[in-house]
Design a protein around this nucleic acid. Structure first.
Lengths: 254, 254
DNA sequence: AAGTGGTCTAGACCACGGG
DNA sequence: CCGTGGTCTAGACCACTTG
């Protein structure tokens, strides 16, 4: 009977709006109004193309828009499914904590997976950010963080090897980076600069985060400093824009 | 002679990557490597389709990707043009300043255009955010901010009418909102909550900001409080993701 | 084997901008 | 008028999932 419902959908081909846009809106409204449960499968693109009286590429593009809004998820060979809208509230600027610590406090279950860890030369770009020389060694760390079992962000971190001998032997999956730095090396982070922008995933990050290439990310770049003003870590985190909200509270300083 | 350069481009149709993706990357690299100046017109889609040996819709989709990355801008009837990459560094969390004040300090020339200003009833959503009753009156203000002449973000602000009688008569184009609140009403903002997310523009906002609907925005929602803990303003700002970087510095508090 | 989405083609018509 | 991008069609082949 499900098909009967969808079959009522239609668009006005006379309107000056693109058909794919009208179809996208029609589907969106239909899903909202009828409160289509998440994980419901949409009719096939073939079927929809008949309903709306357009070609399949047009339907494909319409659904593409819904996917970019994270309303649906496509699975090759299976179909298109309504997504449950989840957002993880996320505190990060309030106090000077690493993202891992911030997550811990929130009480949500989260896991860390180390994608890669190695020692490399800084190179000109990283060296400039960290006020090192390009040939200096740094520890490179790439971690994937999942919340409630779902991938939410990846972080790439660079730390000066000189300051943290043996760092690669630490267990980054079960302890937060900041706590390792403070407890194992006695170097606490006392200041951090952060830069935030919108970005797009690389093919690798899209795979890790299980998102399409078209979905925007929130990029958070950070430089952490120790008490003597030297750089302790340079990091770049990429968050799924559909799963994360960053929040903070600011008070008058004077 | 420009055509000669572009004509060298090609892709490997045997690769397992979509053609539109390969073409997009090829064009991107070509623009970067040859430092194609901004405002240069790309070859027509027709021409490119011949060069790459694919159909025009495929070229169209490839260029679509570049547009979403804000590398090019399409103009109907004219062509596709390379965009100058401009980013406005933007301090926002450091201290408790309004966005207007933050801009002023940055030294960049900026203008404010009032799109709309009126008194309305709060409604349930706004009332909840501002701890008002749905039927309470609020002043609604929608402003477009331009930096160096280009639209960069829109802000919608709601303020409780009761606290600020005659507010609509103020000149919001030449003074910042916070300074009006403090100097005209003696109510300074001492605390603010901020929530940040990625969003997509409404058709109206896309027009105001001169961006395609596909381009993501940074949304900054804020609630400002006065000394007695009451809500002074609720605002929602939407920034062009390709023009803005938000930055902050955090210190250890304890 | 059948059904799904991913992608592509060759051609088409339109609206817009500029000569 | 012509060249541009915006959009659409009808059909196709592929890779993947499921029965």
């Amino acid at each position: 009977m499900a098909k009967l419902e969808w079959s009522q959908l239609s668009i006005d081909k006379g309107k000056p709006l693109p058909r794919y846009y009208q179809i996208s809106k029609a589907l969106e409204k239909f899903i909202e109004k009828n409160r289509i449960p998440s994980e419901t499968r949409l009719p096939s693109e073939e079927y929809l193309s008949k309903i709306f009286g357009v070609s399949r590429p047009t339907i494909n593009k319409a659904i593409q828009l819904l996917m970019e809004k994270s309303l649906v998820r496509k699975e090759r060979g299976k179909g298109t499914f309504v997504i449950e809208k989840k957002v993880v509230p996320f505190v990060f600027m309030q106090d000077l904590t690493s993202l891992g610590e911030s997550l811990k406090k929130s009480g949500l279950s989260f896991t860390t997976k180390v994608i890669e860890s190695k020692e490399i030369r800084a190179g000109s770009t990283i060296a400039r950010e960290m006020t090192l020389k390009p040939r200096d060694l740094v520890v490179y760390l790439k971690r994937l963080r999942c919340i409630e079992g779902e991938p939410v962000f990846v972080t790439e971190t660079y730390l000066p090897s000189k300051k943290f001998p043996g760092l690669l032997k630490q267990d980054f999956a079960s302890r937060t980076l900041y706590s390792i730095l403070e407890e194992e090396y006695g170097i606490p982070v006392v200041k951090a600069k952060r830069i935030l922008r919108v970005g797009r995933p690389s093919t690798e990050d899209a795979t890790l985060l299980k998102i399409p290439l078209s979905q925007p990310l929130i990029e958070l770049e950070g430089i952490a400093y120790s008490g003597d003003g030297s750089v302790v870590a340079y990091s770049k985190s990429k968050f799924r824009g559909d799963r994360v909200v960053l929040s903070s509270t600011v008070f008058k300083t004077q």
